[in-house]
Nucleic acid binder design. Sequence first.
DNA 1: CAGTGGTCTAGACCACGTG
DNA 2: ACGTGGTCTAGACCACTGC
Lengths: 273, 273
Amino acid sequence: MVNPLPAPPRESRASADTAEGGASGRAPAAAASGGAAFSPLYRQIKDLLLQSLERGEWKPGEAIPSELELAARFQVSQGTVRKAIDELAADNVLLRRQGKGTFVATHHEAKVRYRFLRLAPDEGGEPAPAESRILECRRVRAPQDVARSLEIRPGDSAVLIRRLLSFGGVPTVLDEIWLPGVLFRGLTQERLMRNQGPLYAFFETGFGVSMIRADEKLRAVPAAADVAEILQVATGAPLMQVDRVSYTYGERPVEVRRGLYRTDRHHYRTRVN
Amino acid sequence: MVNPLPAPPRESRASADTAEGGASGRAPAAAASGGAAFSPLYRQIKDLLLQSLERGEWKPGEAIPSELELAARFQVSQGTVRKAIDELAADNVLLRRQGKGTFVATHHEAKVRYRFLRLAPDEGGEPAPAESRILECRRVRAPQDVARSLEIRPGDSAVLIRRLLSFGGVPTVLDEIWLPGVLFRGLTQERLMRNQGPLYAFFETGFGVSMIRADEKLRAVPAAADVAEILQVATGAPLMQVDRVSYTYGERPVEVRRGLYRTDRHHYRTRVN
DNA sequence: CAGTGGTCTAGACCACGTG
DNA sequence: ACGTGGTCTAGACCACTGC
């Protein structure tokens, strides 16, 4: 076991990446801890692509090199590159467009934009455009539970944002957002309020942090008095509480968010399969 | 345009399905309505496989023929069959097991079982086993909204089931389930109560109805008096309301369900990407 | 050992978008 | 006309399962 490169029947391809800035070889550290090991070639290519994305070799919205170019760079067949890209496209990390190329997913698109906002109006098809109001933005020390979710140390620098989303003038979503301070150095309330458009697009262009996926835990809770006032409902009225942890490349958590949703004219939609 | 079989460079394969019970040819009705048309070979194979599943040629839990056999039957290469199966496996319709074969997904498995119950305990890892109590089961006429969701006519025969799920003695989920009467002919309260195990497994073995996927709409609502009593919470306490429409092969809706969840010790988990 | 799915390759041709 | 991704094929070999 533990032969990550399954004995190539041709030339060696141990250190194939020469076109880039001089990265490490392809073979994963196999002899290290007693871990599993053996990953097929296409998955090693996938990891290399993820590393390139992570260090910003290709920016969101840009095209990555063509399949043939990548095949040449990595010394593998086009089919192997293709399978690696297939998986990244299935994860919404990359986006294929026939005849044009393969692009890095970006939050500057209505399509992606509404993948992360699961709230839909009860009547009428697609979600109405939301008005966003920043209530607060300051740097704080990360409390214990937030720190654990963000995989930083309690007391480390963090950014706390509170904001209100309204649809057609009706306040609907109250979000409390925690970000690791290290990744969001220049984030100020002023810059935040100047920003139009979705928050994740702002994080992407402003700080190079791409949200790839998120885990959510949902509950029904009674509205506290202060929340009730902001959302213009009665104290104790049922709200949906959405606790989200968002991840970027490499399963690294980069945002913790607690949302409180009014669900009297909207609902949270999901697909299970 | 409208050449669904992209000019095979070899022998004709217009009516390749001979091994089966004599189905229609592969080519989709192209000259019909001004619809789109052109679907790649592997997708046509996928549709054929879905049709076989739908008419019960292979039952849940059974193995389907090997890739080579299917390739021979459909007169295509193994790679094309493989791609068709890949998509069905991604949809959780089929399940590949290396060295053993490809199997029809079944709800008689803990793994699948908890794909459709999104409720997880706040403490402790995997969901505890639930105790199920049938409160009611009778045949009724489908009300308008249910009929619309089930794509039947209002007033058509339907089955109404109400049941309570408890975890460790704590009543937690109150479900109201509507099924099209035609598909669930012999379904009686007696048979239902004899059944142990998950409902969807019962539907599968008892009535040949396989739930493949579901759409859900979630809301926070106050507990009505009667519901509150059953779930042992205060009247008006926040509950999560989950409206589900479940589908079987071919996007056919076969169940409408409204669940009311206590979320004081459990939460609804989701992944968004 | 035989049979299954899993990986990898090489090459041909198709469909799409852009000059 | 060209370059991109999309489809399809044929064949080799690997990994896993069970006899």
